[in-house]
Design a protein around this nucleic acid. Sequence first.
DNA 1: CTGAAAGCGCTTACAG
DNA 2: CTGAAAGCGCTTACAG
Lengths: 339, 339
Amino acid sequence: MESKKDLRTITRKDIAIEAGVTETIVSYVINGNRYVKEEKRRKVEEAIARLNYRPNSMARALKGKKSNHILFIADDIKGEYFGKLISEIDGLAYKEDYFITLCADHQDEDFVNRIYSKFFDGIVIGSASFPLHNIQRLIDAGIPIVLLEIRDYSSIQGVYGLINTGLYEGSRRVVRTLYERGRRKLLFLDRVSTSGNWSSMDDWRLKGFTDQCNVYRLEPVVVSGCRTEDELSAKVIDLLASGYVPDGIFGRNDPIALVGMQACQKMGFNVPDDISVIGFDNTRLCRFSSPTLSSVEIEQSEIARWVMDMMMSLIDNRSSFEKRLEVYLDTKLVMRESV
Amino acid sequence: MESKKDLRTITRKDIAIEAGVTETIVSYVINGNRYVKEEKRRKVEEAIARLNYRPNSMARALKGKKSNHILFIADDIKGEYFGKLISEIDGLAYKEDYFITLCADHQDEDFVNRIYSKFFDGIVIGSASFPLHNIQRLIDAGIPIVLLEIRDYSSIQGVYGLINTGLYEGSRRVVRTLYERGRRKLLFLDRVSTSGNWSSMDDWRLKGFTDQCNVYRLEPVVVSGCRTEDELSAKVIDLLASGYVPDGIFGRNDPIALVGMQACQKMGFNVPDDISVIGFDNTRLCRFSSPTLSSVEIEQSEIARWVMDMMMSLIDNRSSFEKRLEVYLDTKLVMRESV
DNA sequence: CTGAAAGCGCTTACAG
DNA sequence: CTGAAAGCGCTTACAG
């Protein structure tokens, strides 16, 4: 088979020949940063259209232009939560001529080096487990960074974007809501993680829950450290069997909340009569369980909008900012049958 | 604020100086394609480690090396299905030093031009709505392509990878299963799409369903053309109210199946006594609905493995293949309470 | 065994 | 108004 490499290799030179102008002229037409005589401009534009030419982004990036790639680091690509968010960001990015590269969080040091290879104009970090010192390293290196504030990032120095997605306030509201319904014995169910990556106190959801419980002088129980949903279910059942019966359960995300709910049901408790359950993320799961699950909804579209907004600002004028850009978003609690 | 650009700009030159060798030597050490005296090699390797150097991928790609970026085109980034798949692929890709760029399918012609800008070593197409002629264009251009066979791709010419994920056989098995349980009046619920992107007969799920119904001489009903889940629900309710009561429902994916199931329940029918329901993708939804939902499971890990496998083969030796690479995978039907 | 040099496809300061 | 030229950071054929 013949190599058809040529088909993808329409270069500036081809356009110059096709349009009968210098390569320089082609560049200036594309970048629009110098006056070019109307006639030449038209010829170039026609040639570009005719040959479907697009300047090679790598060559441009090499010369200091943008690569038009943004990296999104997530720790749970699988979850529906990120799916929606990525999908929204992708839509906005496409309009700005950007591509989104998606990557799970990797713990090895080499990961940062790989990112360093200069491919990305900016990085969005939506992972709760990406090491702080690595984030700092990337910021210090001058790469535009936008952080989704899943945990406490107040120690991070420098210029970057910070999007507080309202996890902390949302979690506090869950506690307030449960409290107002007379619930006093609250149970927090942490995420399950095969890699042992559970929430610590700088996790905003757990912290919001704990802080608000303190306000009410409640003594909540936290179930953490499970590697599978089955393990979590068993732990909850043990807890119930041992005589500790909560009257309110807050799951770190919807599936977790549902695992808890099912465990309660299995032990003969009624949701919501005996125990109220609230989840987080308001995924589709909420509408199909029985009872349907109340859940905290994060404003995905708003987040996506801010991610791109901050990223574009940082990419274009990073050096003009004195300190980090911040925005605080709200969550809303979607009430269904489980409370 | 000072520009800290320099921090991300450790180049081959820096390594050469640090190691006291020529830049050429550094290149050969990195690429390992020429003998370099042991001592120099060690010095270079040490300098690389000390300075955390990584060759600029764009410069390498410009010189004909790989960009180490693979593009994944999906039409439903949001769905849990793609989330899992992407996550698996990302894991494998990372080991091969590749990044996965994720992009929703865009219908405009310019989309292909953008892809052309030479950024990607290969493209995985997991979208059912990416125009066939654009796929052909990319293949003809010599870009390694792997297709997830969501619909019929038999008309595509040339060398590429094709992964048949078993949708057709899986759908036929659903019909067989329902038939064996005595179900004769079958209903297929198509996806909802705000952009009007519904299944046609080259969609393997719908085709598998229809073909197997023909084998049994059944006369199934297909509900398609809905833009929202509420609309779909209303349509099903109308259907039931009008007197057509199916005894078996097959949903194109799990949420769709659950919408159908809830509509039936709302109309007073019992699932599974009156009506059996089966979904597709075996997402988490299945375990939390009541009754729990039977569903066809696709082998995500196997698909991911084959995607990367074929992609690596095509990238490394595309020209050595005479025709397309194919693999047929199986699905399994996970039975739960809804049948 | 190794270096100087050409060149990948661009951008833009420099010099008309 | 416009062109020839330098250079981005690399790879590798060419010539020792």
